[in-house]
């Protein structure tokens, strides 16, 4: 996590452009502004200063949004992103896992159709589905706000959640169905079927639990995809969340905010992977046992 944030800290300073390039006209004014935000110091000094702040739980001040603490900027925005990301993940999981179970119990033709739909869901990028939803539901039908965010009003979140959830559900569906198919071809499942257990009962009662492990290992990439998708969704729907903060920071070369958001998002993905790893023994007790050799 620190490695990711540190590499970002260095690399972004090597990229063309800087936080002051488009704001301050003239080299004298820019030099003065650089001194005010500490950009005139050697990169090593800036880095150690950043680490010192980090040890105190601070992320420094924004270089573009004058005087604003990065921590507050990120956490305020993250609180809004969570209101979209968590329901989107739950919705995606519900759609994908429910669909996978039904598909496993259904005929081959239905499975092919569902698989085709899922591939389509992945192939159509969120920057196409999100404006399409906004146009149809927001502008033509006018049943939901076309964009914007109002604290306490969930109607503004429904379309962003849906737009974010659809491609996630499609990816998760494909992973789930593949895992289920592998489990269903296992001899123990064939034995259960031979004993007269129904296909749906076999899937829900026996195969689903075994198939959950490969699905769980997909949690990390899924959370990463959610955070990535939120950049587009928040831009299309005018949501002042973490995705928009990151996009603004990248555009304005706000080094402090870029390093802060990278740290927070990489921490989120790593934490998700950790929780997933720790959950394996709950689903399959053999995963927690020490195997004796020899």
């Amino acid at each position: 996590m620190m490695l990711v944030a540190s590499v970002t800290f260095v690399l972004i300073r090597q990229a063309p452009g800087n936080p002051l390039a488009t704001t301050f006209a003239g080299q004298a004014l820019r030099a003065n502004a650089a001194a005010q935000v500490g950009l005139d110091r050697p990169i090593l000094v800036q880095y150690t200063d950043w680490l010192r702040h980090l040890a105190r739980g601070e992320l420094g001040e924004s270089m573009v949004f004058r005087g604003q603490p990065v921590r507050a900027l990120i956490f305020d925005a993250a609180a809004i992103t969570l209101q979209i990301a968590v329901p989107a993940l739950l919705l995606a999981a519900g759609l994908a896992l429910g669909g996978a179970v039904l598909a496993a119990a259904a005929s081959g033709r239905a499975r092919r159709w569902a698989g085709g739909l899922a591939v389509l869901g992945i192939a159509i990028p969120v920057f196409v589905t999100a404006p399409f939803l906004a146009l149809v539901i927001g502008v033509w039908l006018r049943v939901l706000p076309v964009a914007g965010y109002a604290p306490g009003d969930p109607t503004y979140l429904l379309m962003p959640i849906l737009a974010l959830a659809l491609p996630l559900a499609a990816s998760l569906y494909l992973v789930s169905t593949q895992a289920l198919e592998e489990v269903l071809s296992h001899p123990s499942i064939r034995t259960a079927r031979a004993k007269g257990l129904g296909r749906l009962h076999t899937v829900t009662g026996h195969a689903f639990r075994a198939a959950a492990i490969p699905v769980l290992s997909f949690a990390g990439p899924l959370v990463a995809a959610t955070l990535l998708g939120s950049v587009v969704v928040e831009s299309v729907f005018d949501i002042p969340g973490l995705g928009r903060v990151f996009l603004d920071a990248m555009t304005g070369r706000d080094y402090a905010v870029i390093a802060g958001t990278t740290l927070v998002t990489s921490a989120t993905v790593i934490l998700t992977n950790l929780v997933a790893d720790l959950s394996y023994p709950l689903l399959d007790p053999r995963q927690g046992m020490t195997r004796e050799t020899g």
Binding site: A134, V139, V146, G148, V236, D238, P240
Partner: peptide
């Protein structure tokens, strides 16, 4: 004064009177 960064979104919000 409302931040609407995407011009396409702004047009949609304009059409519905936001």
């Amino acid at each position: 004064h409302m931040v609407v960064t995407d011009p396409n979104t702004c047009i949609r919000r304009f059409r519905v009177g936001d």
